[in-house]
Design a protein around this nucleic acid. Sequence first.
DNA 1: CAATATCGTAAGCGTACGCTTACACGTTAG
DNA 2: CTAACGTGTAAGCGTACGCTTACGATATTG
Lengths: 105, 105
Amino acid sequence: MVAYATAGWTALGDPTRRAIFEQLLEGPLAVGELAEYLPVSRPAVSQHLKVLKAAGLVIDRQAGKHRIYRVEPDGLVALRADLDRFWNKTLAAYKAVVEEDTKES
Amino acid sequence: MVAYATAGWTALGDPTRRAIFEQLLEGPLAVGELAEYLPVSRPAVSQHLKVLKAAGLVIDRQAGKHRIYRVEPDGLVALRADLDRFWNKTLAAYKAVVEEDTKES
DNA sequence: CAATATCGTAAGCGTACGCTTACACGTTAG
DNA sequence: CTAACGTGTAAGCGTACGCTTACGATATTG
């Protein structure tokens, strides 16, 4: 199994979703509050939250009339797995390049 | 400074670019060879490589008629910095949640 | 029960963007 | 010098997708 955080990469590929996610890193917020920090409408935030939730990056909780969103580690774990794999393979490639350069003298 | 790998996130946000990048993780390739692994045309690959290069994720080297692309660590370093920040803040948020739950008994 | 608040979703629109075809440029070979 | 190969880029097209407005659903309040 190679494991891909396809949904995660796609989710954080959008600038507005990154902004939403970064804001939630500062603490849980309701959708309406979240929208105040952003230059887009509340429904737009709702739609982005749906994507972030599907990627396991946020989780929501009903609190009276409000729906509180907060960050969740699951999606980040998958992204870290991918990124670590990228990193290790990149280093291996670099090592190969260095050895190749050393060989020719 | 907060540092954002904006270009990196956007670059790897596209599935085709991720496929290109993953292929390059297996070793350096020319544009034409790279295109053989993918369901898109060679010019499309060229355009994606331009984006990946701007994000510091790949680097190119002229080799005769061919132009060899290979992965580069710079872009990954920036992504790792962002992801580590996400991770730390997420853990801190979780810690706060646990303490809050412990308080109420 | 009516009224208000908070939110999700449907519908529709506009634009960014990923793709292809055609062409231009540089390099190598004959 | 011509021909052929490998590639980048311009032009154009089609569609995915991010956004807004309008509406429906649920939960609290009076």
